[in-house]
Amino acid sequence: MLFYLLRRLLYAVPIALGVTLVCFSLVHIGPGDPLSSILPPEASQAIVDRMKREYGLDQPLPLQYLIWLGKAAVGDFGTSIFTGRPVLAEIAPALVNSLIIAVGGALLGFLLGIVFGTVAGYCHGRPADRFFTAVAITGVSVPHYWLAIVLVIVFSVELMWLPALGMTGSGGTEFTFSGENFRHMLLPVIALSVIPMGVVARTVRAQVAELLNMDFVDALRSKGLGEAKVFRHVAKNAAPQVLAVMGLQLGYLLGGSILIETVFAWPGTGLLLNNAIFARDIPLLQGTILALALIFVALNLLVDVVQAILDPRIVR
């Protein structure tokens, strides 16, 4: 087990390095100079050269990468070109805000997905199965940003039950455990939950239906075991696969919330990314994507480890 953990950890290192390389390349695949967005077009060559020196853009590319990597390793993602604040100071609070709705959406989606998938798997081929399968397919096919807008139209515009925008009524970006915060959270969380709901429901249904057909279930039943106990065995066998899907989904939610955050003006990493793209704030763009990708890598690692604990066969 320990050997497996070490190997898996070692394997994550080149992946993480590759991720940093991709993030770094983002600056250089873009058209024009990263500085062109902040410098006025009439800036003299002397000023351009000085700025280039200050941002280290006069160095050869591999050296730039190493310098950037060295700084990023100690948490220095540079300074946002647009706001002039350290990138980390911009990312940290936004990340917390994104995490709040991502975790909320994941929990809701997983819960519904597991319930729907289990019911569908148990009723294999019957109307209930077809109904929940249809719900799951709808969940994975619906553009979640459009669903978000529809939710706003229904619950904010027509019914006027819930707020349409922001995190608090006063435009604050600090999350507190208040009823107002929860009311603002509700629509983004629902919009985010549909994709994980659909994906998890499909996985659970397939697993449960397959496991129920296996000989060991017949053996358990013929032993006189109650249906609840049989279900516990089925759940245990389905868990590793379902868990892997869930881990990926949580990561996708964190990265994919940009569209939802744009619709609801939720002050998270998605909104930050959106601003960074349109202000061509490359350090901020790089830093945010790197942070999200590294979290995703860590999440994958965690899933692998938990999976190995639940199902020791994976280690071998």
Binding site: P14, I15, A16, G18, V19, L21, V22, C23, L26, V27, I29, G30, P31, G251, Y252, L254, G255, G256, I258, L259, L273, A276, I277, I282, L285, I289, L292, A293, F296, V297, N300
Partner: peptide, 24 residues
Amino acid sequence: MRTMDVFYAFPSILLAIAISGALG
């Protein structure tokens, strides 16, 4: 396959947005 693994380390929507955003 190891090169492809690196792209797996990004949530796909995030990578699409990042590349498109960087390309302009």
